[in-house]
């Protein structure tokens, strides 16, 4: 019924495809392409004292990033934190995804709850929660001290704190695609691995790991850019010692009211993330190209 309605609508207009795509295209145009274009435009504008914009074309803003050590350090730290967080998420995700995919049902449900429940808590409150845990006299250090291990000192306001906070925040985005990929592996393939002599560990290494790479790629493509673009978490957990590009951009735009320089930083961030994701996906694709097309 609906289908026929759509068909007659489409064919009457003689352009069913474009007509149906129009709303989506319009949405993207208004909310993605236009702001991106504005950002690009800002990034090549000049600024005069007092924060007034002058319509001109200059690459000065970009030059400033690459000639100043301080800004480059932000870029490198951002990439380092994003990479560490992604790797940490990968490692933490496998046990969780395996429980979700193959664990007993109650256990899987509890895991899912623990994984998803934090999403219901406001991001700022969550980050403040972590400050209590990671403080010098926080929960973590107290726990370490109470079992008699040497206390590592301040964790809060370091890169480690940002990585922990971001990993907690974005873990579901890695676990869920990974679990979906693992569920798709035929149980009989794993059974075959076992029967033909692979211990559970080797079943994981030789079968589950390679066959779940598409899920890992999808998860990484989400976690990496989200961490690199994180703003609240590094502000609260990283403080002045581990703030990321997002914080620098905020500083430039809001505090220093230097929109052109902020826009240049933002453009650079977007460009880097696009490039990294492209390389990421190409690498994964290369790894799985020999077999992933079986469905087609």
């Amino acid at each position: 019924m609906h289908r026929r309605l759509f068909q007659s609508f489409g064919s009457a207009a003689g352009m069913s495809g474009p007509a149906l795509a129009a709303p989506a295209v319009g949405f993207l145009l208004v909310f993605l392409i236009v702001p991106l274009a504005a950002m690009l435009l800002y990034s090549v504008s000049a600024r005069v004292a007092g924060g007034v914009l002058v319509p001109a074309f200059t690459l000065e803003n970009y030059a400033r990033i690459f000639t100043n050590d301080l800004y480059l350090r932000f870029v490198i730290r951002t990439l380092r934190v994003a990479l560490t967080t992604t790797l940490l998420c990968m490692i933490l995700s496998y046990p969780l995804a395996l429980i979700l995919a193959h664990g007993n049902r109650t256990f899987a449900r509890i895991t899912m709850l623990i994984l998803v429940a934090p999403l219901l808590v406001n991001l700022v409150i969550r980050s403040y929660g972590w400050t209590i845990v990671l403080n010098t006299r926080g929960l973590l250090n107290w726990l370490i001290a109470s079992v008699g291990l040497p206390v590592p000192g301040q964790i809060l306001y370091s890169e480690a704190a940002v990585v922990i906070g971001c990993a907690h925040l974005f873990l579901p985005l890695m676990v869920l695609p990974l679990a979906a990929a693992i569920i798709r592996i035929e149980p009989s393939i794993m059974d075959c691995g076992r029967v033909f002599g692979a211990s559970e560990f080797r079943v994981f290494c030789h079968i589950v790991l390679p066959l779940s790479l598409p899920g890992l790629a999808a998860g990484s493509a989400l976690v990496f850019p989200l961490t690199a673009g994180a703003y609240v978490t590094p502000a609260l957990l990283g403080g002045n010692f581990a703030s990321l590009l997002g914080n620098l951009i905020e500083q430039q735009v809001v505090a220093a009211s230097n929109w052109p320089f902020g826009a240049a930083l933002a453009t650079l961030l977007v460009a880097i993330l696009l490039l990294v994701n492209l390389i990421f996906l190409k690498l994964f694709e290369r790894k799985t190209a020999r077999w992933v097309h079986r469905g087609r």
Partner: peptide
């Protein structure tokens, strides 16, 4: 994994990411 049996499933259960030779070699590699 130490029983030393061979098995054949209805859906073949070949390892999709391995070539024919690698599939056949799997048990020997293990």
């Amino acid at each position: 994994h130490k029983r030393g049996v061979g098995i054949l499933f209805q859906n073949y259960a070949l390892f999709p990411h391995y070539s024919v030779a690698q599939n056949v070699a799997f048990g020997l590699r293990m």
